[in-house]
Design a protein around this nucleic acid. Structure first.
Lengths: 217, 217, 217, 217
DNA sequence: GATGAATGAGGCTTCATTCAT
DNA sequence: CATGAATGAAGCCTCATTCAT
């Protein structure tokens, strides 16, 4: 059947087969981040991916399954990248914290995946499974990372002795909140403060706040 | 005595009339915090309040109006109290910040209403009307409050000179995140750090981070 | 108990009792004509009458019953008045038709009751009982009236010989349509033609159209 | 063969796609004319068409859009035909008016779609959007059509000089009223006069009424 | 008699999910 | 594999009707 009605520049079918799920979750990520879970219509995801709505169901059992896949695929690689960045850092802990936070922001916060944390926080209650998964795969690894930096600083007497568990959350909070703003009310609110200034002040406060006090004399 | 017509202990009609709105917003708060805005069905709110769905519309024009009432009733008064605190405060700015944050936490964060911020951040994109309302009614007043404290500290040379806009967000972030955790993944995660420790360390870092440096001399 | 909270100038209760139903139907007429049957809310009728919604149910079993009462009370008296006007007319039939139509317009069409025909035509299908009632009480008497005028004209050789039944409808149609326009799309449409011009042309055509032809010679 | 899964003769999916909108508007026309606009439940339309309620929304955005489609499909073409008739007509204006009115009656009045005008007049007040639409799409074109015929007659000295705007409405009124009767109280009332007689007398009066008077001499 | 708070059925509309092609 | 037409279960909101006071 030559001259088949290939209206669109026929995409290579064969190759697609394996790439499909990733294409779909990529499209879904975009829409979920844009609209939130409840407001995301599978129609939109399908349109974004350039497939029919039915096709989604060939790869994912339900909207919920799709959502889970998006979170899974979206966040873990980013975290891995973050970990790689940190591994084998030489230098003082202030600089390490600085680089870690900056790197995470550039790799995650400033990217589209930066919308995931908001999504997860938003839907954690409705999807305990996601919450648990995220908790294990992301939060634990993430906090461990920060924890190691804090502990390193304390051990090296660069940081004060603090309650590490608490401080880990305190260190993460401003970065997470920045992501959340950006994907919710930021349009108007957080505006007025650009990323550079925000992080400057963040480090200004955090590092002063953590710095070991030097004996006066 | 089957078929007794008085199945439920007939509640006094008259007295209800005035109490109703508060009953309804209380019920709504519970469900909103539990399920999120979009996922809250007015049926559930009605059931929670022990009335029929129609009754809600006797007191509130729409789901949105109900939500706004919840916010107005639960958060705005706290802000007012906060404003009063700041306005009449004598003493150094560190103590003021301490009292303000502690007070806010007790009035909002530790209460059920503390679930509202998460909800708003989560669904702001989908309900621009609500986002705008919250922005005006809560965020603007809240940031103004913090801003006034920071500026007071700077003016009194108690705090360093910082970019106030940025610092306002940095100061709020750990408090907001604490609320968000609590209403999403906290079940398991943030556990391990109790409020007291968290806020101790929070002040420890924030105040050190803001403190004006004393000339060595 | 002096100083009772008589906020409104207490209306004489005793006298009301008998007048109430008429007050209610008057209010209902206004709202029905304004909004149509389905769109009329009993709340609005009650408000218009200055009573509570419950009160309506003291006098009328249902919205439907109220509607029927409105039609009954609104139209029959007007028709009676119309008949009185006609009785005992002396003069030629052209003038009679002219006066009849003009009179009916002034008594009905130009008044608020002029909205009733539209209502009835609109709802006849949904309320066969109303249709039957209106048919008997109004249409039959109305057509008989016109019929008598046409027949009078024919008998007196002032009008051509025509199919009286058909002509009766043809004579009524422009008057009825005028009422209907006025209560539906008139706002914009029929505008451009004032009543005087409309009726001038109406008579101009109708009377020429009915006039007996005079033999030339 | 109990529980046979093929309860209904499975209709061919492909062929349906194109025919569907017409099927749906046909069903809708029936129900709209039967019940009126407000009283028409989309459930009924769907049932009448043999589809589910959701299917309606595959083809029409809303009840209003569905109604507009019904009008566009049923009335607008007739107007177009009428316009064509007038545009190409050779001959005297009496015959033109006769043909136009007769044609309109056959295309609209005598069909099911003839129930639409009543509906629009009845509910225009409650659905301003529909009123505006009908005004633009139907009334304006319709009156322009009649107007052109009247003016043609005057220009050709076949008709008297009359107030055209008024006469347009006078000419339409008996036709519209005939439609309205037919769809409201006609069951019993207008009966007694068949269409042929009615239109005979209509032309008899209208044309005599419009005819230019010939100078005596 | 009068009130008006309360009810609950029902309408329009949306959208996740299915399934014949 | 892919499609997209079709479904039907809810959800928000309205309003005629009831009934305790």
């Amino acid at each position: 059947m030559p001259n088949s009605p290939a209206t669109k520049a026929a995409p290579p079918r064969r190759r697609r087969k394996e790439a499909r799920p990733a294409e779909l979750t990529a499209a879904a990520l975009e829409v979920f981040v844009e609209k939130g879970y409840a407001a995301t219509r599978l129609d939109d995801v399908a349109a974004q991916a350039g497939v029919s709505k039915g096709t989604l169901y060939l790869y994912f059992d339900s909207k919920e399954a799709l959502f889970k896949a998006v979170v899974r695929e979206g966040i873990v690689p980013a975290l891995t990248e973050g970990e790689a960045l940190v591994a084998g850092f030489k230098g003082n802990s202030e600089d390490l914290l600085r680089e870690l936070a900056t790197g995470m922001w550039q790799l995650i916060g400033a990217q589209r995946i930066g919308g995931i944390p908001k999504l997860v926080f938003a839907e954690a209650r409705n999807f305990p499974e996601i919450a648990a998964f995220y908790q294990q795969e992301v939060i634990q690894r993430g906090t461990a990372l920060i924890r190691s930096v804090i502990e390193r600083g304390i051990k090296r007497k660069e940081f004060r002795k603090v309650d590490v568990a608490a401080v880990v959350h305190l260190v993460m909070a401003p970065v997470l909140m920045r992501m959340i703003w950006r994907h919710s009310i930021d349009c108007c609110a957080a505006a007025g403060v650009d990323d550079a200034t925000y992080f400057d002040e963040y480090f200004g406060i955090m590092l002063r706040g953590l710095r070991a006090e030097r004996k006066a004399s």
